[in-house]
Simulated assay, not measured.
Amino acid sequence: MQPPRRRTFLALGLLLAGGGALSACTGSHDDGGRGEPRRPDPDEPVRLRAVAATDTLLAGYDALLAGPGAGQAALLQPLRAEVVRHRAALAGGPGGDPGSASSASSPSSASSTPAPPSSSASAPSTGSAVTTPAGLASLERQTAQSRLADLGAASPQLARLLASVSAAGVLHAVALGDPVPASAPATVPAASPSEPPATAASDASAPPSGPPAGTAPATASPAGTGSAPAVDPEAVTALQGALGAEHAAVYGYGVVGARLPDDHQRTDARTALAAHQARRDSWQRLLGTVGATPSAAAAGYQLPFAVTDAAGAVRLAAHLETRLTAVYADLVAAVPGPQRAAAADALRECALRAHRWGAVPTPFPGLPDTATPTPTAAPTP
């Protein structure tokens, strides 16, 4: 019998099959110049709400920059510039691609120019009342949460964008000092009868399988409660990809924990491991409910680079979480509306953990961005 083939962590960075083809046709130019009216964009109501919320947020930045926050421009201006990019992408054409969004319907620059009164006449009123960084952090958090309310109504690619922008808003709130960056998931599944050990990562120095006292890893149920959801074959493929990515992450955190001498960092690794085990189990349950056989973990995984010390372990943890943000952004687009919330929640959690491990920030977590460097894999001996 041949030994199981070793799979690579690089798979975490691959786009899930079909992710680029999920965008609905939401509009068209005049047909052959015959003067036929342009078809309406089905995403328009969602886009209008998203842009209005972003205008409120920009008004908050402008109010703070023009008043008591003027001395904190070095912190506020880069965050505001990212919000400007979010607005351009959310107001862009069909597909919601941040790379293709033009400056149309967006503020003229990323400076402290006041936000334009476009989509909602009353939108700036709440934002203009912001007087402290804490108030702006709260507005960022509330706006991030509101983005997720439209996941089920949006086209696949716009839902993917909304989830990414929501995660970015949570990171902004953290940068502004918010100690509670996002609310708890709306649904939490029943605990598994037993917790399988971390696959191929069970040496004595690896983090234990349970969370430390006083912590509760996020375990939002992708299936929710009730009867089995309807999931098409493409979505099943995407869910299998997410499950495979979580198998790899569980293995990776065994390596991370073995190389971290600091108790605080080991606690972070232990908490992250427990969260990834919970996500792994939730995808296994969902796949089982739709009649699919969950993919099994490999006997071992090839690391993207050699990990020989604590610095390498921290880098590996950041790499794992960053790659998972891409997996979950694509999963949002691949699954039906009822399952999108769990995928978006997983994206947010991974973005927060990547930030905690020191990953380079990006305006669109989980989406391709030219400003975000891509770690280069090194062959393992």
Rank of each mutant, 00 (worst) to 15 (best):
P294T: 11
L316V: 11
Q302C: 03
V307Q: 02
T325H: 08
P338F: 05
A333D: 02
Q302S: 13
A344I: 04
G337A: 15
A297E: 09
R340K: 14
E321A: 14
D330H: 00
L324Y: 03
R315V: 05
P338V: 05
Q339V: 11
L324A: 10
A310E: 15
A326P: 00
A296D: 13
A306F: 01
D345Y: 11
V332S: 08
S295G: 10
A306R: 15
A296S: 14
Q302G: 07
D330N: 03
L303H: 03
A313I: 07
R323G: 15
A343S: 12
G337V: 08
A329Q: 00
A334T: 06
V335D: 09
A333R: 01
Q302T: 13
P338C: 06
E321F: 06
A344C: 02
T308K: 06
A298C: 04
A306W: 01
A326I: 01
Q339C: 12
A298W: 02
A341F: 06
Q339Y: 08
A341G: 13
R315G: 14
G337L: 08
A342C: 05
A329V: 00
D345E: 13
A342L: 05
Q302A: 14
A306T: 15
A342S: 15
A334E: 03
A334G: 03
P294H: 11
V307C: 03
S295P: 11
D309V: 11
T325I: 07
P338L: 04
A333G: 12
L320N: 02
A329M: 00
G300K: 02
R323C: 06
G300A: 13
T308Q: 12
T322N: 07
A313H: 07
P338E: 05
V314T: 15
F305L: 13
L331N: 01
A296Q: 13
V314L: 15
L324S: 09
A329L: 00
V332P: 06
T325V: 09
H319D: 14
A342K: 03
Q339E: 15
P338A: 06
V327D: 00
T322H: 07
A297K: 08
V327T: 07
A306E: 14
L303S: 02
S295A: 14
T325C: 12
P304D: 06
T308M: 01
